[in-house]
Amino acid sequence: MSDLPYLTDDERDRYGWQLTVRGFGEEGQRRLKAATVLVSRIGGVGGTVALQLAAAGIGRLVLAHAGNLRLNDLNRQLLMSTDDVGQQRIESGVRRLRALNPHVEVETIAENIDESNAARLVARCDVAVSAGPLFSERLLMNRAAVRQRKPLVDCAMYELEGRLTTIVPGKSPCLACLYPESPPLWKREFPVFSAVSSTVGSLAAMEVIKLIAGFGEPLAGRLLTFDLGDQSFRTVRIDREATCPVCNDRA
């Protein structure tokens, strides 16, 4: 603990409501301050992850998302504003984060995850969050996280449903145990409300906070499914695939 950064008086005041959370405390807050989290895409899910982590006092956010904001992103991309339509999404998003918490370092990468950057970006974080719509990106994040033994929170949703799991290399199945390849029928535009994407994002942010601060029980080896249609939440077990080409070959 001695090599963790100390909190300033201003930070103790800012985080006062969470410093008394059982199992968290000042040491948990100092762990957050020392941590770097990579978020792949800052749309409806990842934008909420980033917002929650900024509010919680993560030391450094690395945010990766290419492209410009479109009007039809605004039903769920809560970091952005109507005035930002047509502007680079990542720069729009970061303004809100910096305004919320200037203690948080925010690094923006105007790229989506691909073969050329996945390993490099994952190497820079302590925990990664996969919040994009493409299975190819999620599977690249998964492979990089497993190889580098970094925890990865993987997020998904559809209509009023959400799904979430946390991959802890060496302890849990990985995404490729469930999805060995990009499913051919998946379409990247699908029905969803912000209330659903931001629920998934908030749940994912809580996973990150628990992983870094070392309390609670992350979803390693479990899949959370929920349906806001009837407000049912359920966790089920997921198992490693013995022949998984990603996590079976890890060193």
């Binding site: 499913p183 990247r188 699908f190």
Partner: peptide, 10 residues
């Protein structure tokens, strides 16, 4: 038996 087709983030 619950059937879950693949879904993703966004």
């Amino acid at each position: 038996v619950t059937l879950l087709p693949p879904v993703s983030g966004g």
